[in-house]
Design a protein around this nucleic acid. Structure first.
Length: 714
DNA sequence: AAGATAGTCGTTTTT
DNA sequence: CGACTATCTT
């Protein structure tokens, strides 16, 4: 592809952005306007024109998925692998910097990354140690505080607590937490960013080096950057390197976790002579959907301003459905989905979006009853599962004995007679001498402080780790993993438990070996093992493996950002739910809710259906609701109300309720993903507890909870 | 050391 | 209501 090919299939503003001279650029890219395309084309253009070599490029995204797709697109366009190009997430790139310069960063070479669950555990342990009451100092809140401070670039001694006792205590905990991390060689997500910023800030040589190297810096989803990310970008850009920022202020929906929409708003002030380009032509949605979205977002203040338009047709009106209650809302959606499927729309082109996860349940139950395959996004990811984290903890100890978080996790998992009392002793020793748990245990052993039984148990654990380390020394990664699972008896302990849960865990551990086998180690200064462990922490993997090839998509509005579907159901548009009541007092937060709604609307390609219920069951009690203000912000001419007779609606609601006790008829044939086919022999309970007994052809009879088993009626 | 039971709390989530 | 946790029970 030569340069004209690169530019020919772009529209005017896209081309303007891609072929711009090497100056700062702010590309305000509306939903569906081809922003990833522009980003990838810009990079290909820079390389192809010889403006910069691949290693002179730094391209930053927020998610691993975005980073992968960006690299893929660039490589396709340039028709060559571009290994020297730095394309990655903020965290991934920060990690890479810290690995290369661990000494300057003041980290041990084998430092490990904490995910938020690890962080939570450490904080809880710390509170115990400091004898603070969890009720008064909720670990979640402390986590929030620490990460928030780090996101703002503040170390404990930078926090201005102006003699407020609460804040003062928070800072003390923050400082103590940092101590623990430092001792154990642990780095949390926010720390990756903060430290990557600090090493550049404090090392003139390093900064010079990277400023010389990265002649072009490109950032995706710029509206989501937080303070430290922005500072880091500014530092790297320096006075000479143009920054190419792509984003959409109207899609900023992560303010609540530190993203600063101000960063995109003040970009042109901070970076002088910035060229601003607006991508407003939308290639995704119908004219109707775009007009509605434009009208909605008009209600926000402080926008950079933008109006989406399309070449295509107006399409169908937006459907608005008023349901009697949440069950009836679900019933309507499920019926409507059935119609879509009958019309030939692929199931995975149909999405049900909601503000909060709790809303998925009624929808799921409805889909289950109609035997429509679906997939719920969100929830536990692969590398976050308990058994996988146990396994990773063993691997981490092989690499670094001082990893306290991992030590705590598996010192008695599977149980090997190291009781709470013994662990407590070790913790106290560690604190008294300011050493790690491993070192403390060693000391106590040397001093013969344990009772014979406890001593033997802890000794056995430590031998086990040492033995694993020796045994696996020169093994390839998947052999290390397999050996670890065996030697630690982790897999055996799950195998002897006959429950369904344990069976899944064994499967996941087997999957971990597969993941290890498939892991591609790009040789840098990291060992294959450390590299894999970093990968596991930075990329938590897929959620539930998709059991069907083509399921209806269920997810929160946040998760839906960046995706598109033929038919979108926007559900639960009720005051208090969406906009959420927690966001209604501050105008800034309400604007963010509105942006979330904007994101939801603009996910739809052909048809959008909005629904709300008059009565919703939430936290066990029924609440009367008002339609969301966002509904009234949509111009009437784009919306068509769907009416069904109220009596019919109530009647069918009751039908649902009776049907829910037994959606599966006795004697009907069903299929289960793991157990194969079978016959329903009995049932009991209703709602989420509804269970059916199925006599499977292969493995015999089993009780299954309908809500989980995802049975398909044959 | 696993299992039962009482108590709490209830947006959004990636890295 | 129901998921999750802390604490008590065997």
């Amino acid at each position: 592809m030569d340069i004209s090919d690169l530019l020919n299939n772009l529209n005017e503003p896209q081309r303007e952005a891609v072929a711009a001279p090497p100056v700062h650029q702010l590309v305000i890219a509306g939903a569906g306007s081809g922003k990833t395309r522009v980003l990838a084309h810009r990079i290909a253009y820079l390389v192809r024109t010889g403006e910069v070599s691949p290693q002179g490029i730094l391209a930053v995204t927020f998610t691993n998925k975005a980073a992968r797709s960006m690299r893929d697109r660039i490589e396709t366009m340039l028709d060559m692998p571009v290994r020297q190009m730095w394309v990655g997430t903020f965290h991934g790139i920060a990690h890479r910097l810290l690995r290369s310069h661990w000494q300057e960063a003041g980290l041990p070479q084998t430092f490990q990354i904490l995910d938020s669950d690890d962080q939570h555990r450490i904080i809880k342990r710390l509170l115990k140690q400091m004898e603070l009451d969890e009720a008064r100092w909720p670990p979640k809140q402390i986590q929030w505080f620490i990460n928030g401070q780090k996101d703002e670039g503040r170390r404990p001694d930078h926090v201005d607590h102006h003699n407020a006792p609460f804040e003062e205590q928070m800072v003390r905990i923050y400082a103590a937490y940092e101590e623990v991390c430092k001792r154990s060689g642990l780095v949390d997500f926010a720390e990756l960013l903060l430290r990557a910023h600090e090493i550049l800030l404090h090392n003139k040589n390093l900064l010079d080096h990277y400023q010389r190297r990265f002649q072009h810096i490109l950032v995706d989803e710029f509206q989501d950057t937080n303070t430290i990310q922005y500072a880091w970008l500014r530092l790297l850009a320096g006075d000479n390197n143009p920054l190419f920022a792509v984003g959409d202020d109207d899609q900023s929906i992560y303010g609540w976790r530190g993203a600063k929409i101000e960063n995109i708003q003040r970009f042109t002030k901070d970076f002088p002579n910035t060229r601003t380009v607006r991508l407003e032509q939308n290639y995704r949605s119908t004219g109707t959907i775009l007009s509605a979205a434009n009208a909605l977002i008009e209600n926000n203040s402080d926008r950079l301003g933008k109006n989406l338009w399309t070449d295509g047709s107006d399409g169908e009106l937006i459907l608005l459905y008023e349901a009697f209650n949440d069950l009836e809302e679900a019933r309507y959606i499920v019926n409507s989905i059935k119609n879509c499927i009958d019309k030939g729309i692929p199931r995975n082109e149909i999405a049900v979006l909601y503000r909060s996860n709790a809303q998925s349940r009624v929808i799921e139950e409805g889909l289950l009853r109609s035997a429509i395959p679906y997939k719920v996004y969100g929830g536990m990811r692969f590398f976050e599962r308990q058994e996988v984290k146990h396994a990773l903890a063993y691997l981490r100890l092989i690499s670094n004995r001082n990893d306290d978080a991992s030590f705590e996790r598996v010192v008695n998992t599977p149980t090997r007679g190291v009781g709470e009392k013994t662990v407590q002793m070790i913790r106290e020793q560690a604190r008294a001498y300011n050493i790690t748990l491993w070192q403390a245990a060693q000391q106590l052993l040397d001093d013969k402080q344990f009772t014979a039984r406890a001593g033997n148990a802890i000794q056995a654990f430590m031998y086990l780790i040492e033995e694993m380390a020796v045994e696996t020394k020169d093994m390839p990664l998947h052999d290390i993993t397999e050996a670890m699972l065996k030697t630690s008896t982790l897999i055996a302990s799950y195998e002897k438990d006959k429950s369904e849960k344990a069976r899944m865990r064994v499967e996941n551990l087997a999957e971990l070996v597969t993941a290890a086998r498939q892991f591609e180690h790009e040789e840098d200064e990291l060992s294959e093992l450390d590299s894999f462990l970093a990968h596991a922490a930075l990329e938590a993997g897929e959620g539930q493996a998709s059991e069907y090839e083509d399921p209806v998509q269920l997810m929160t509005l946040h998760t839906a950002k960046g995706l598109e579907f033929e038919h979108v159901y926007l559900t639960g548009l009720e005051e208090g739910l969406f906009p959420h009541r927690m966001s209604m007092d501050e105008p800034g937060r309400l604007d963010e809710e509105r942006r979330l709604c904007y994101v939801g609307i603009t996910r739809a390609k052909q048809q959008l259906t909005i629904s709300y219920a008059n009565v919703r069951r939430l936290h066990g009690n029924e609440q009367y609701t008002q339609p969301s203000r966002f509904i009234s912000e949509l111009p009437k001419e784009y919306v068509q109300e769907v009416r069904i007779k109220r009596q019919a609606a109530v009647a069918s609601t009751m039908q649902i309720e009776t049907a829910s006790s037994n959606g599966f008829q006795l004697g009907s044939r069903v299929a289960h993903v793991k157990f194969g086919e079978g016959t329903v022999t009995s049932s009991e309970g209703d709602g989420a507890h509804a269970r059916v007994q199925v006599n499977f052809d292969d493995i015999g009879s089993k009780w299954l909870v309908i809500a989980y088993a995802k049975l398909q009626i044959l």
